[in-house]
């Protein structure tokens, strides 16, 4: 019975495309599915991810499907599609915005969540450790770089900002850190 399955579309909605239009990405509505984006996509030629299909799904309003799919995170934001789209669709920026929406719905990859925690705790996405401190000394540099690592007040500023934009609430770090994992999708 596994062969009996359908992905029939029974509802087309403006909800998702309206969100993008409100954010200023109007050209998306003019996408004619020419395939230039997928045609040059370095990710698409080694995975099932199809940039063009993603644009169509957004046009049709298949919101849950788009935001929950981990393929949304296969794009390496190389901007090749953005540069080549003949309709001027800012493809990569659309994908980044969709990722924002996905995170708001709670869809995030676990390693990315870990990065958010480090960002909140240290002000760096990739913080230093003892080993690399030694490496800095080997290269005649200060053991800590003159960043938030060396200036705790600056690290506090970052936390103030992340609280102010509610990044902590969004990603579940700082005061909002929970035990359970984010939905990986």
């Amino acid at each position: 019975m596994e062969i009996i399955k359908t992905n029939k579309i029974t509802k087309i909605s403006d909800d998702l495309s309206n969100l993008l239009r409100d954010a200023g990405y109007l050209e998306l509505s003019a996408c004619i599915q020419c395939g230039t984006c997928s045609g040059g996509c370095p990710s698409g030629r080694r995975t099932a991810y199809r940039t063009r299909s993603l644009m169509k799904k957004v046009q049709l309003g298949l919101k849950e499907e788009v935001l929950s799919d981990k393929e949304l995170w296969f794009c390496s934001t190389c901007y090749t599609c953005y540069e080549r789209c003949p309709r001027g669709v800012p493809v990569t920026d659309v994908i980044i915005y969709l990722r924002n929406l996905a995170v708001q719905e709670g869809y995030m990859q676990a390693p990315h969540l870990a990065l958010c925690k480090m960002f909140y705790d240290t002000g760096h996405g990739v913080p230093i450790n003892d080993n690399f401190s030694q490496l800095r000394k080997h290269h005649k540099l200060s053991d800590l770089p003159p960043t938030t690592h060396q200036f705790p007040k600056a690290a506090k500023e970052i936390q103030t900002l992340l609280k102010s934009t509610e990044f902590d609430k969004l990603t579940g770090v700082g005061d909002y850190e929970k035990k359970e994992d984010k939905k990986g999708g």
Binding site: Q33, C34, G35, T36, C37, G39, G40, R45, R84
Partner: peptide
């Protein structure tokens, strides 16, 4: 499928990159 890029191969042949959009 609109051709995305054309590269040069050996013997001055060309490599076409596009998406076959019908087959995805």
């Amino acid at each position: 499928g609109r051709v995305s890029e054309i590269l040069e191969a050996e013997n001055d042949n060309l490599i076409i990159r596009a998406e076959e959009t019908m087959l995805q």
